[in-house]
Design a protein around this nucleic acid. Structure first.
Length: 271
DNA sequence: ACTGGCTCCTGAGGGC
DNA sequence: TGCCCTCAGGAGCCAG
């Protein structure tokens, strides 16, 4: 699933192939993504140079001479660098052709992703405007989590998956980060101490950083810019491990649904 | 201001 | 072998 580490892995893989290159064309085979790919996308970006490839939360931002492309991988999307002549496979919805002969290929079986263009500063775009801090930047801290959680009754797991609280924490990493710091996923967000939020912030940071170092988590679909899977799956401690022994205490891992999401935790280690 | 539920989509996997 | 059902999930949207 593309969460922050997968998007960052993609960004790092793409950057050396795309930065400073000119876009020579766009091929839209199927523009029916979460929001339709703009009809005139080719006109908007053709001939422009890619100045930088950035990430904000789970959004990839491709800054052009004029305007920016905003991409989201949804839950099954990937962006790969392939030869511009290579034949498209099923669900290869969009190609962005580069002057080098390579192309950036957007593949997304479930079509929950998007590919948009904006003339304005991307941070002011309506999809990005309300986003919370980046978990790997210094402005994200336990103090921030503590401050914005006061009075909130929702489970802490839902709370940290809210992109207005902190960006990039999806279901897999929410489960893993809570296990790592020993907080029960169902505990009310407003009833956790400042001290424990300090541990949670550090836990989120570590979990995401570790996953980036492993190239992200591949459950089914995710591949990086070169088409390789990520290896963080092999070190998941609770996600998908219902009934298996906790790596810390040996107690069987619990799995249940919380707010439409599969939730995993150790009933002994997490309080 | 929050919270929970619904929704989009496709492919995998299980049961029979 | 094949069909049908359920599930997975990011995040916008809406109603309460």
């Amino acid at each position: 699933m593309p969460e922050l580490p997968e998007v960052e892995t993609t960004r790092r893989g793409l950057a050396p192939h795309v930065c400073g290159r000119e876009i020579t064309g766009v091929v839209v085979r199927d523009g029916r993504l979460r929001w339709p790919v703009p009809e005139n996308l080719c006109d908007l970006v053709e001939g422009q140079c890619i100045a930088a490839l950035e990430r904000r939360g789970k959004y990839l931002l491709m800054r052009l001479g004029e305007g920016s492309l905003i991409a989201h991988l949804g839950m099954s999307g990937s962006l790969r660098i392939v030869d511009g002549d290579s034949p498209p496979r099923k669900h290869d919805h969009v190609d962005i052709l580069l002057q080098t002969g390579a192309c950036i290929r957007f593949h997304d079986p479930r079509r929950f992703g998007c590919l948009l263009w904006t003339a304005e500063e991307p941070d002011r775009h309506e999809l990005l405007r309300e986003l919370g801090p980046e978990p790997l930047q210094p402005e994200f801290s336990g103090a921030h989590l503590y401050a914005v959680s006061r009075g909130r009754t929702a489970p802490v797991k839902n709370f940290i998956m809210d992109s207005r609280v902190v960006v990039g924490v999806g279901n897999i990493y929410a489960n893993e980060a809570l296990f790592r710091c020993g907080i029960h996923p169902l505990r009310s967000a407003g009833r956790i101490s400042a001290r424990r939020y300090g541990a949670l912030a550090e836990s989120i940071r570590q979990t995401l950083a570790d996953s980036i170092a492993q190239g992200g988590t591949t459950l089914r679909d995710f591949v990086d810019a070169a088409g390789n899977p990520g290896y963080f799956r092999q070190v998941l401690q609770v996600y998908g491990r219902t009934g298996e022994a906790c790596t810390r205490c040996g107690c069987p891992i619990c799995g249940e649904r919380v707010g439409q999401r599969s939730t995993y935790y150790c009933p002994r280690c997490q309080k």
